[in-house]
Design a protein around this nucleic acid. Sequence first.
DNA 1: TTGAAAGCGGTACCAA
DNA 2: TTGGTACCGCTTTCAA
Lengths: 341, 341
Amino acid sequence: MNLKQLSQHLGLSQTTVSRALNGYPEVSEKTRKTVREAARAHGYSPNARAKSLATGRTHAIGHVLPVSDQHEMVNPIFGDFIAGAGSTYARHGYEVVLSLVEDSKIENAYRTIKARGNVDGIVVHGPRMRDSRIELLQELGLPFVVHGRASDIAGPYSWHDVNNTRAFRRATAFLLDLGHRRIALVNGLEFLDFAHRRRLGYEQALSDHGLPVDPALMRSEEMTEGYGYRAAAAMLDIPAPPTAFLVSSMITAIGVRRAILERGLVLGRDVSVITHDDDLSYLSNGQSVPIFTATRSSVRAAGARAAELLMQLINDPGSGPLSELFEAELIIGQSTGPAPT
Amino acid sequence: MNLKQLSQHLGLSQTTVSRALNGYPEVSEKTRKTVREAARAHGYSPNARAKSLATGRTHAIGHVLPVSDQHEMVNPIFGDFIAGAGSTYARHGYEVVLSLVEDSKIENAYRTIKARGNVDGIVVHGPRMRDSRIELLQELGLPFVVHGRASDIAGPYSWHDVNNTRAFRRATAFLLDLGHRRIALVNGLEFLDFAHRRRLGYEQALSDHGLPVDPALMRSEEMTEGYGYRAAAAMLDIPAPPTAFLVSSMITAIGVRRAILERGLVLGRDVSVITHDDDLSYLSNGQSVPIFTATRSSVRAAGARAAELLMQLINDPGSGPLSELFEAELIIGQSTGPAPT
DNA sequence: TTGAAAGCGGTACCAA
DNA sequence: TTGGTACCGCTTTCAA
């Protein structure tokens, strides 16, 4: 059932029916009531494509995920982020359009998205340290919010980010307080902005304690299980192996733990492991089980918040740019026992 | 730049330009070349909404995720599934439209999706054991593929599923072979079809070995970390606690491990844990580290395959219904030592 | 308070 | 091989 059929059925014009349904004031209450009831009875909903063609607004938000042929993994937190954003959009009558775009075609992809005109705005995922997408989007005049930040952009733009630097600084400091002196960082790809900031926090904590940064204890790759395993295995086999691992993702931590167990070492006794996720962390005295950010629910909240920022930007372009920095919660148990030597 | 502007710029009709760009044979090669070059030079891409309004095809696929206010978690495998599906769609020029729909409004949501007409087909997520959505979609005539199955549907429909029953039967049998006799099942919500099938496999393996099914060793809830913790804690505190846990999700397994460690028990020595995920499993002799399905990459592959099925269904409606059952890989280490008593 | 008609940006039929 | 035109389903201006 479309508008024409509905209006014929009612003996009214398309115009009147459209106005009645969209809450225009010049329709009599009686007419509006009749129209509303008929619409419900016939299960009428307006054709979204036609509506957007007529209004110029699509009521859709694009989420663009860069994928690369070299490391084509999707960030595991994406599911939670989009869940948070999705429910928020749904409440406001917006839809989500997902685009997985190959890294090399990303520039063209944004131009195409703009030209095809099927979204009102965009959420940029996986920002790089130097990210040309942001300037491109500004140039195109397509409203956008970045999930994360890009370190090389000087001017203002809209973003929503977790304080990765501070989170890793605190986690590293915590391990130092436990007595650890050789702390390994198993990080994600550091051309990704979040991973770069995490390393910064790690290095800051070491400097705060007057400790040198040891490249032999630092790794940076795509966050797979296999990478965690290989990185931890290699570092555990050097003459002075780390007594603690700070791991950027739950999946990678699985590999790290595998390497530890394989060597007959006991998690939380011989080696501490802290993960930046909902995952268990294992501390040196084995008595407590701290959980280190970011939790799944906090990622959902971030998605919801980013969605809100973008919708505001779309509906009131003058209000931008909008940005927010979330402090990740660091949930720490009571354990402060000494580190292994 | 739109079609009208481009055609005026070229001194041709919209018709000819459209035909040249869409590969119609009646255009001279010379004209086609000119048009193509001009289109590229001006960065022209057709407006998706206008195109779909004219053709009746949207080149978009809807993924509908049920969310509920009681348990509003999104299945963690969704990210990988949609990544696999998304790249496949992208290769074929399709887009993904995501809808998060509240459980109670799901029926209406499908009707609305059909009426609004902004997708050519749908992927149904999170099928229930008794799921009215399938019959509704059949009635609406909207092409669809179910990720999973619904046990109560007799007639044929299109689906793509992992063999959950067999996976859990094998895993349970494996634990039984190791000598375990008290094996706990920490399952997801069993009105979800996949969780129901997992329990079936678990029970089958017990029956195969002539063992009774003990309700005291079975739990079924939403797969959070907290649930895993509470379930394992409670079961470990009964007079004859389980010596092994079979856990439905990585997140839940984190909680299970936390409860185990908190009681001073050693994973893989005192208690075995097998997870249905990429996660580590801990076996009784602690010597090996088997990993139990489904891996992230297999979930991606499943998403890709489901996407292919749906696109075929859309482009050749006569070819359905299409269904496929994936056998999950069970990666097992060498360890077959005895279970704790 | 209601309706006629133009237009959003394409496609596709029919005629030339 | 090319162009004119109706049409997809809706909104919105203008007139009644």
